[in-house]
Design a binder for these strands. Structure first.
Lengths: 145, 145
DNA sequence: CTGCTGTGGTTGCATATTGAAACCACGAAA
DNA sequence: TTTCGTGGTTTCAATATGCAACCACAGCAG
């Protein structure tokens, strides 16, 4: 239960992941987020406040010297990159018709689409859901169990 | 915009990912989900209906021969495994104190924790957010552009 | 047979959240 | 000075969630 529910408390609403997605794309200002997402300002304000409270975003002075503030991802926020990629790739696989155009995530350096995320074992095998189990770590004294 | 928002329409509420998490853990019956998650039955019913409508889950006759039905993940639903893993690993990294016990995702075969998800380029380099960009695929006739 | 329990919902209504739109305060530019 | 841009806050209607009661059916026990 605790493995997933805590993180969901921080980002488990519709708008927060979109805000985070936009932050990864370089948006920083309240008005930028609001314009790009088209959500109500009071909801955006509440969401940004929640993301700041959870340490996913910080508020910094505006980078252009103006008296405004900007919202930037923290390390914790940037840690959501794999999740956003997973969401994007799931969408690519299952939400578009084969011929339907949609944005792609590409490697800047060579302009090629990136690989699909794969879960791997410590020794490099690709793992599916049936290959894994959620379990409690052994007690410290049980290292030989 | 379209890369992430469509999938979020299907699973971007607090309960759906928890339901899907439980489905990955083998729960199948309405009552099992309801008991394990403790959510209101009308909300569970609505969520399951939404997941079925989006093709993420199917309803099958109960596997024990009883006259009941079970909810099982479809291929599309199972495609959410990386996302759930990403969420879990983000939680492990940022939501627990260093000494705090929490469940782990382990490789059944050898009992070892799995690797962290990493995004990689086609040629195998590990990629961070700054190494990637979301872009539209070239037009079919622009293959040399 | 009746009554009870278990299952999978549905319904009615209170509470919480979201969303639209108006309003506000401040700074900068014309 | 006025206007515009920015980043909110406030008010209230609409929508979603949650609680608890209710319902229908199947199966089992007495």
């Amino acid at each position: 239960m605790c493995g997933v529910a805590r993180p969901l408390d921080a980002i488990g609403d519709w708008w927060s992941l979109l805000i985070i997605r936009d932050a990864f794309n370089g948006l920083r200002r309240f008005g930028e987020f609001q314009k790009n997402l088209g959500l109500a300002k009071n909801i955006l304000s509440a969401r940004l406040r929640n993301l700041v409270a959870h340490g996913i975003m910080d508020i910094e002075p505006a980078s252009d010297g103006s008296p405004y503030q900007e919202y930037v991802l923290t390390e914790k926020g940037r840690g959501l990159f794999p999740l956003l990629v997973a969401l994007r790739q799931w969408g690519e696989d299952f939400f578009f018709e084969p011929d339907e155009k949609h944005v792609l995530l590409v490697d800047r350096k060579v302009g090629m689409p990136v690989r699909k995320l794969e879960l791997r074992s410590q020794d490099g095998r690709v793992l599916g859901p049936e290959d894994t189990v959620v379990t409690w770590p052994p007690e410290t004294g049980d290292l030989e169990a």
